[in-house]
Design a protein around this nucleic acid. Structure first.
Lengths: 189, 189
DNA sequence: CGGTTAAAAGCAATCCCTTTGCGTTAAGAG
DNA sequence: CTCTTAACGCAAAGGGATTGCTTTTAACCG
């Protein structure tokens, strides 16, 4: 439900959605998120405010949609030759991107205007898909004893997100490394 | 920083704060959170809207303050005679309370209007204090090998909160039990 | 390919939330 | 008790949020 379900996915509806999303990104970069209002976004996008209110409900839901788009990973996890190295590198990058000022803002926005939890679920699905890629590579290499996907979500991803949201002070790549080490304890490599 | 720092903690200021917080709780129960507006809360509290805007900034920050108050634990963790039993019981209750409709709403509100992260940090501190109480009891009993407080935050509390925020479907007390079991693996019990 | 239908966008008027300047009250200090 | 100033009340203006109605057009079906 990240882009709201469109009964009419083509033509004008699609153009309006793209135009509005682009307007949000532009104005966010130019004036900052605090200055965003629905009428401002509407004017930049070339639509009327009521169009946005009818499709997204309010500004927060619109920002939530845009935030989820920006949280979508744009690259596959790097292949460093082994599960431990792959997972460590991915976790470090994940923490680094998510704990940045921009990343935290996007996470908050994604959670914020999300009555049904669909957008938040999408964020989690992105991370899970990346983890699955790492695990699939390990499987192809014949590495045994890799943890389940859910174990990594619980013991690597979840602690990182918890710290970002609830205890933003003093986060570093070291923390991500430690979490991976604990989760992979007992594996060679 | 849950109740905003008051340069004048006594008398009228304190009365206004209490009155406004009470108004939020009453109206939330009567009409639901979606119906809350600053002028509505102000009228119930017997103050003018500008008072609320000047002290809290906007509705979200006010709701964030009220939410943190409601997330404060009102009882100590039950003493069931041993670390494993204590921690399991506490984790089950924590998940149960936090994953309820009301609990999720309070968590979201607490994160929502929280520019400096102070309110979110307070939520985490509440959980940490409860965990510390359980661990202190284990120490007094002479139980050895108990995990560090941070290990429990990372591997029990964090996964629970992550699931509540990002994957609300299919959460049950069983999940809390499993997390505790994994964290205490290897301990007698 | 037209013709039909209804979803989605435009328009405009209304409501009321938000913001701000200024005067008043009262908490805290000496 | 007096002084200072933070905090509150008041009121006006500005603008964002909401909604009924109309127009456009995407999608469907003969």
């Amino acid at each position: 439900m990240s882009p709201k379900p469109m009964a009419r996915p083509g033509g004008r509806s699609a153009r309006v959605q793209a135009s509005v999303h682009a307007a949000v990104r532009e104005l966010e970069a130019e004036r900052g998120r605090a200055a965003l209002t629905v009428p401002l976004v509407a004017a930049r996008a070339g639509v009327t405010p009521s169009t946005i209110y009818r499709r997204w409900g309010d500004l927060q839901e619109l920002l939530s949609d845009v935030a989820v788009e920006r949280l979508r990973p744009d690259t596959e996890p790097a292949d460093r030759g082994g599960l431990r190295a792959d997972l460590t590198a991915w976790a470090e990058q994940f923490l680094d991107e998510m704990s940045s000022t921009a990343g935290r803002a996007y996470i908050r926005d994604a959670l914020l205007g999300d009555p049904d939890g669909g957008n938040a679920g999408q964020c989690s699905a992105y991370a899970a898909a990346q983890v699955d890629l790492v695990l699939a590579r390990a499987h192809e290499r014949g590495e045994d004893g890799a943890p389940a996907r859910e174990a990594i979500m619980d013991h690597v991803v979840a602690p990182i997100m918890y710290r970002i949201l609830f205890r933003p002070e003093g986060l570093s790549a070291t923390y991500a490394r430690e979490l991976v080490e604990q989760t992979l304890a007992g594996l060679p490599g």
